Amino acid sequence: QIFVKTLTGKTITLEVEPSDTIENVKAKIQDKEGIPPDQQRLIFAGKQLEDGRTLSDYNIQKESTLHLVL
């Protein structure tokens, strides 16, 4: 699982696999929060994550925290 922290300070927990794409993660966030993926920007280690890449591409491991910017 990974954590996604929103600007409001809320933390969302997501069940993911390293092979999941960023697009996939955004879809999971939409399921939980109702935020359309095209409004979501995910930041990890100061980098904006691209939809077509996977979590493992960015070396995002379990218990990692991503930041969600709208």
Rank of each mutant, 00 (worst) to 15 (best):
1 Q>F: 15
1 Q>A: 08
1 Q>K: 11
2 I>K: 01
2 I>Y: 05
2 I>A: 02
2 I>C: 03
2 I>N: 01
2 I>V: 06
3 F>I: 07
3 F>C: 06
3 F>V: 06
4 V>A: 02
4 V>H: 01
4 V>W: 01
5 K>S: 08
5 K>E: 09
5 K>C: 15
5 K>I: 15
6 T>W: 14
6 T>R: 06
6 T>M: 14
6 T>Q: 07
6 T>A: 06
7 L>N: 14
7 L>D: 13
7 L>A: 13
7 L>K: 11
7 L>V: 14
8 T>K: 11
8 T>P: 05
8 T>H: 14
8 T>C: 15
8 T>V: 08
8 T>Y: 14
8 T>D: 15
9 G>K: 04
9 G>N: 06
9 G>E: 04
9 G>T: 03
9 G>F: 04
9 G>P: 02
9 G>A: 04
10 K>C: 14
10 K>R: 12
10 K>M: 10
10 K>A: 08
11 T>M: 11
11 T>P: 04
11 T>D: 04
11 T>Y: 09
11 T>E: 06
12 I>C: 03
12 I>W: 05
12 I>F: 10
13 T>P: 06
13 T>Y: 08
13 T>L: 10
13 T>M: 10
14 L>P: 00
14 L>Q: 00
14 L>T: 01
14 L>E: 00
15 E>D: 14
15 E>I: 13
15 E>G: 07
16 V>F: 12
16 V>E: 00
16 V>C: 12
16 V>D: 00
16 V>H: 05
17 E>P: 03
17 E>S: 10
17 E>I: 09
17 E>Q: 10
18 P>S: 10
18 P>W: 15
18 P>I: 10
18 P>K: 06
18 P>F: 15
18 P>Y: 12
18 P>M: 13
18 P>G: 10
19 S>D: 12
19 S>F: 12
19 S>P: 03
19 S>T: 13
19 S>I: 07
20 D>N: 07
20 D>P: 01
20 D>G: 03
20 D>H: 06
20 D>V: 04
20 D>M: 10
20 D>L: 05
20 D>Y: 07
21 T>M: 08
21 T>S: 08
21 T>A: 05
21 T>I: 04
22 I>C: 03
22 I>Y: 01
22 I>W: 02
22 I>D: 00
22 I>Q: 02
22 I>K: 00
22 I>M: 04
22 I>T: 04
23 E>Y: 15
23 E>P: 03
23 E>L: 15
24 N>M: 15
24 N>D: 13
25 V>Y: 01
25 V>A: 02
25 V>K: 00
25 V>F: 03
25 V>D: 00
26 K>I: 03
26 K>R: 05
26 K>G: 01
26 K>Q: 02
27 A>F: 13
27 A>N: 12
28 K>A: 07
28 K>T: 03
29 I>V: 05
29 I>F: 03
29 I>R: 00
30 Q>F: 13
30 Q>P: 01
30 Q>N: 09
30 Q>S: 11
30 Q>I: 03
30 Q>W: 15
30 Q>M: 12
30 Q>C: 14
31 D>T: 10
31 D>H: 12
31 D>F: 12
32 K>Y: 08
32 K>E: 07
32 K>V: 11
33 E>V: 13
33 E>F: 10
33 E>Q: 06
33 E>L: 15
33 E>R: 05
34 G>V: 02
34 G>F: 04
35 I>W: 12
35 I>F: 11
35 I>Y: 14
35 I>M: 05
36 P>Y: 05
36 P>R: 08
36 P>M: 06
36 P>C: 09
36 P>V: 05
36 P>D: 07
36 P>F: 05
36 P>W: 06
37 P>Q: 11
37 P>M: 14
37 P>E: 07
37 P>K: 15
38 D>T: 09
38 D>I: 11
38 D>Y: 11
38 D>L: 09
38 D>W: 13
38 D>K: 12
38 D>E: 13
38 D>Q: 11
39 Q>D: 08
39 Q>P: 02
39 Q>F: 09
39 Q>E: 10
39 Q>N: 09
39 Q>I: 11
40 Q>G: 03
40 Q>V: 10
40 Q>N: 03
40 Q>F: 15
40 Q>T: 05
40 Q>C: 08
41 R>D: 08
41 R>S: 11
41 R>W: 09
41 R>F: 14
41 R>Y: 12
41 R>L: 13
42 L>T: 00
42 L>F: 03
42 L>C: 01
42 L>R: 00
42 L>S: 00
43 I>P: 00
43 I>D: 05
43 I>W: 15
43 I>V: 09
43 I>F: 15
43 I>T: 09
43 I>R: 06
44 F>P: 00
44 F>Y: 13
44 F>V: 04
45 A>S: 09
45 A>W: 09
45 A>I: 06
45 A>F: 09
45 A>N: 15
45 A>H: 13
46 G>A: 04
46 G>T: 04
46 G>C: 10
46 G>W: 04
46 G>M: 04
46 G>L: 03
47 K>S: 10
47 K>G: 06
47 K>P: 02
48 Q>N: 12
48 Q>V: 15
48 Q>F: 14
49 L>D: 00
49 L>Q: 00
49 L>F: 02
49 L>A: 02
50 E>W: 05
50 E>R: 07
50 E>Y: 06
50 E>F: 06
50 E>P: 03
50 E>A: 08
50 E>Q: 09
51 D>T: 05
51 D>A: 07
51 D>E: 08
51 D>V: 06
52 G>P: 07
52 G>W: 12
52 G>Q: 11
52 G>H: 14
52 G>C: 12
52 G>I: 08
53 R>C: 12
53 R>F: 14
53 R>D: 05
53 R>L: 12
54 T>R: 11
54 T>A: 06
54 T>L: 09
55 L>R: 00
55 L>K: 00
55 L>P: 01
55 L>E: 00
56 S>C: 07
56 S>R: 10
56 S>V: 08
56 S>H: 13
56 S>F: 10
56 S>E: 14
57 D>A: 05
57 D>R: 02
57 D>G: 03
57 D>F: 13
57 D>Y: 13
57 D>N: 05
57 D>I: 03
58 Y>F: 04
58 Y>R: 01
58 Y>I: 03
58 Y>E: 03
59 N>T: 05
59 N>E: 08
59 N>K: 09
60 I>Y: 02
60 I>P: 01
60 I>L: 04
60 I>V: 08
60 I>F: 03
60 I>W: 03
60 I>A: 02
60 I>S: 01
61 Q>D: 09
61 Q>G: 12
62 K>D: 15
62 K>I: 14
62 K>F: 15
62 K>L: 15
62 K>N: 15
62 K>C: 12
62 K>E: 13
63 E>C: 15
63 E>N: 14
63 E>V: 03
63 E>Y: 13
64 S>M: 11
64 S>N: 08
64 S>H: 08
65 T>E: 08
65 T>L: 10
65 T>W: 08
65 T>K: 05
65 T>V: 13
65 T>D: 04
65 T>F: 07
66 L>K: 01
66 L>D: 01
66 L>I: 13
66 L>Q: 01
67 H>M: 11
67 H>R: 07
67 H>D: 10
67 H>Y: 13
67 H>S: 07
67 H>T: 13
67 H>Q: 10
68 L>M: 08
68 L>N: 01
68 L>T: 02
68 L>F: 03
69 V>R: 10
69 V>F: 13
69 V>I: 13
69 V>S: 08
69 V>C: 14
70 L>V: 14
70 L>G: 10
70 L>P: 10
70 L>C: 14
